[in-house]
């Protein structure tokens, strides 16, 4: 059949419905468990430093992907983060129009590789400037579980 005679109206194509029921139980990993524990117990972000290239990674990881050695030096970072980039999400994940745009930022930390993506607590996207300092707004200690939602959002430093 020549290419121009193809069906191009999708409604004309019959289809059958099916789903593939799969469920996954993910582990956080060795370094991930440490990161979660520090977040839950002390409300801080755990970093890991490579003894060879001296790179610091946030969140902490088990090994340096460049030097390919284990990173045993893990410590909480004390510096505030800064906004590396941000977006205003106008559509929710299922594609429907969101009532209010959600402001989402990639937050990085001085002298560290990596970062954390999370919501930014601001009213409007024009209040956000790249490089602005932010700190995490956390759930209270007793409701924290070590999951990402222990962080409610990042908030600009006054």
């Amino acid at each position: 059949m020549p290419v121009f005679e193809k069906l191009s109206q999708s409604s004309q194509a019959r289809h059958w419905n099916d789903s593939i029921p799969l469920e996954y139980h993910y582990t956080a990993g060795v370094a991930g468990e440490e990161f979660r524990r520090e977040l839950r117990d002390n409300g801080r972000f755990l970093a890991a430093k490579c003894s060879k290239c001296k790179s610091t990674y946030v969140p902490a990881r088990l090994f340096c992907p460049q030097c390919f050695i284990e990173m045993k030096d893990m410590f909480p970072i004390n510096n505030p983060g800064y906004v590396q980039s941000f977006t205003a999400v106008d559509r929710s994940r299922d594609g429907s129009k969101a009532e209010h745009p959600t402001i989402v930022a990639l937050v990085r930390f001085e002298s560290a590789k990596g970062g954390i993506i999370h919501r930014l607590q601001v009213d409007r996207s024009d209040q956000v400037v790249l490089g602005m300092r932010v700190h995490p707004l956390l759930k209270d200690k007793f409701s924290r579980t070590g999951a990402l939602d222990d962080i409610l959002a990042f908030k600009p430093l006054e």
Binding site: A28, T87, V104, R119
Partner: peptide, 22 residues
Amino acid sequence: DQILERPLGTTLLWIFSLEMRR
């Protein structure tokens, strides 16, 4: 990432937007 990114509902559009803005 199943622990650090997915719980937020991260989509590809988010990270492209971050990249475009950067």
